[in-house]
Computed example of a mutant assay.
Amino acid sequence: MKKLFVTCLLVVVLAACATSPTGRRQLMLVSPDQAIASSRAAYTQQMQAFDEKGLIKAEGEIVERVNRITGRVVAQAIAQYPNTADWDWSIEVIDDPETVNAWAMAGGRMAIYTGLIEQTDATDDEIAQVIGHEIAHALAHHTAERMSVVMASQMGVLAAGIATGDQRVMTGAAAAALLAINLPNSRAAEVEADRIGIELAARAGYDPDAAASLWRKMAEAGGAGPPEFLSTHPSPGNRQETLARLADQMMPYYEAPGERPVYPIRPGDY
């Protein structure tokens, strides 16, 4: 029975594979729809906490600027991935000048902190690279992938406990899951988000050369310690060189004539 159980777990894990937009194989024990539902609850909880502290900027020049840039990039995301047209696309500006961070949850709900814009003195082109990168994480189902890592950790520890009969190993499943939840994005996911994000921003009319300058500024921000953004977005060693090469490939999208549509960005529902 122990061997059968372990074998069944391995079959489930092997069967739960999917392919990302760039062709990368992903572990997908959690479906994108499940990740969106879970993210909606997490987003509400997080935003309510910010709201109680008065940290959500509801109006002002910076909000209008972020909404305009985000609307252009989201319009391109929907054009390239029509299945996201019914996502809850929204973004909040968090008034925290000390925090250099931004994130997007499954389903298109995002946040950017004033510290990222102010400490890097970000241009519109650079903000678009941040937004494109975060949207790319959502498009590539990286939230579902990370949640699947949690489940795989739980299943793996449970299997080890059953196989060895060690109760201490089995009761460690919850601790292992907690660690997995807090894991940063994988480098593979970062490379993928860079590739998708820079294209979305270029299609939206933002200079792809800004991607490399943004990451250079990000690396310089934070003083003695790295900014929070880099702790959850680990940087491949050659990121700036790779982004520079990608920028050359994306120039035709950036230089294409015509107006860029703007998706009507609204505040998040929480």
Rank of each mutant, 00 (worst) to 15 (best):
P184D: 08
A128F: 04
Q76G: 05
Y254I: 04
P184Y: 09
T232E: 15
M147A: 05
V63R: 11
P236V: 10
A122K: 00
E98F: 07
Y43L: 12
A211F: 11
V73Y: 01
E190N: 08
M110S: 05
T70W: 01
V169P: 02
P234F: 11
E118Y: 01
M147S: 04
R25K: 13
L55N: 13
A111N: 03
A79W: 02
K53L: 15
S20E: 11
D95L: 07
T114F: 01
M110T: 01
I62M: 15
W89C: 05
Y113P: 03
D269Y: 08
A177T: 06
R245M: 12
A202Y: 09
L183I: 00
A174N: 03
A212D: 13
G60T: 08
P264K: 07
V93I: 07
A144W: 01
M151R: 11
S39R: 08
R216T: 13
V74F: 04
A244R: 13
K53F: 05
P97E: 10
R72N: 08
L200G: 06
R239W: 07
E220P: 00
A42N: 07
D51W: 03
Q240Y: 07
T44Q: 15
A15I: 06
A136T: 07
F5N: 02
T143K: 00
Q76S: 12
R109W: 00
A49H: 10
F50L: 13
Y206D: 10
A160T: 03
L230P: 06
R24W: 01
T19R: 15
V130E: 06
D88H: 14
R168F: 12
S153V: 12
G115S: 01
T99L: 15
A176L: 11
D207P: 00
I56P: 08
V169Y: 04
N185V: 10
R146G: 14
V130H: 04
G222F: 05
A15L: 15
A221E: 05
Q80W: 01
G71A: 06
A244P: 00
A49P: 00
I112M: 11
A104R: 02
E98D: 15
I91C: 02
R187E: 13
N238H: 10
G156R: 09
R68A: 14
A188H: 03
T19I: 15
A159Q: 06
I265D: 05
A189H: 11
D33M: 08
L179E: 09
S90N: 14
E190P: 01
A176C: 06
L158K: 14
R40Q: 14
A16Y: 07
I36Y: 10
P257M: 08
A77M: 12
A122F: 03
K2V: 13
S186L: 08
G165K: 09
